[in-house]
Simulated assay, not measured.
Amino acid sequence: MNEWKKKIQLFLFLFLIILSFVFFKKYIFQNNVDLDNQINLEENNEIIEKSNIIYNIEYSSIDKDGNNFIIKSELGNISNDNANVISMEIVVATITLKNEGIIKINAKNAIYNSKTLDTNFFNNVIMSYAENEINSDNVDLFFQKNLISITNNVFYKNLNTNLRADKVQIDLVTKDIKISMKNKDEHVIIKSIN
């Protein structure tokens, strides 16, 4: 009976992740959606002369359906090699799905590509949607590959379930989810909260 309960909880967890990313794919990250990328810098932003450091940075994109992706950072450093790549510190990303809710990603650091929207969040990453929260060391959003990779010390928590794994990969096209451990001798841990 306990094994059956774990299978149901795993199914519910996977269903929730699939549902979340179906909304991502449908409303925000479609390949042929024209995104309107804007750099919104507050009036009091300081750009240090002869430096690539920017304070209080914000990038936003709105798709044709009115869904909004905003990434904010207290500090950004523009790459010398590629002006589209920005290393960010103290990062908050908000995805507002029209009529569907808000997904938030918080991290100590991120590397953001303003051209492709690919973002690599790292150091104390927390991703939340409704009653669900995923903590990990890394969350990588690869929009050109239609792939989300959540890696290193992945911990999922909702009102009923806790899950621990090393890696969760989500294919936004096929909706396939792979949950795995680095060491094949270790197992994904799923616990029911009663």
Score class of each variant (00 low, 15 high):
4 W>G: 01
4 W>T: 11
10 L>E: 02
11 F>G: 03
13 F>N: 03
16 L>K: 12
16 L>F: 14
16 L>R: 10
17 I>P: 03
20 S>M: 09
22 V>G: 07
24 F>N: 08
26 K>G: 00
26 K>F: 04
26 K>M: 03
26 K>R: 12
28 I>N: 00
29 F>S: 15
30 Q>W: 06
35 L>G: 06
37 N>M: 12
41 L>F: 11
43 E>W: 10
43 E>D: 14
43 E>Y: 05
43 E>M: 04
49 E>Y: 06
51 S>Q: 07
52 N>C: 11
52 N>F: 12
53 I>L: 13
56 N>Q: 13
57 I>A: 10
62 I>P: 01
65 D>G: 07
66 G>I: 15
67 N>Y: 04
67 N>I: 07
68 N>T: 08
71 I>S: 02
71 I>A: 03
74 E>Q: 14
75 L>A: 07
77 N>F: 01
85 V>N: 15
88 M>T: 03
89 E>W: 00
89 E>G: 11
93 A>R: 01
99 N>V: 03
100 E>P: 02
103 I>N: 12
103 I>T: 13
107 A>Q: 08
114 S>M: 12
115 K>E: 15
116 T>Y: 01
116 T>I: 10
117 L>E: 13
118 D>L: 11
125 V>G: 03
126 I>M: 08
129 Y>D: 14
131 E>K: 02
133 E>P: 00
133 E>Q: 10
133 E>M: 13
135 N>D: 07
141 L>Q: 11
144 Q>M: 15
147 L>I: 09
149 S>P: 00
149 S>L: 10
154 V>K: 03
154 V>T: 07
162 N>M: 03
166 D>R: 11
167 K>R: 10
167 K>Y: 13
168 V>I: 15
169 Q>I: 11
174 T>H: 13
174 T>P: 01
178 K>G: 04
179 I>S: 01
180 S>L: 08
180 S>T: 14
184 K>E: 15
186 E>T: 09
186 E>G: 05
187 H>L: 06
189 I>Y: 04
191 K>N: 14
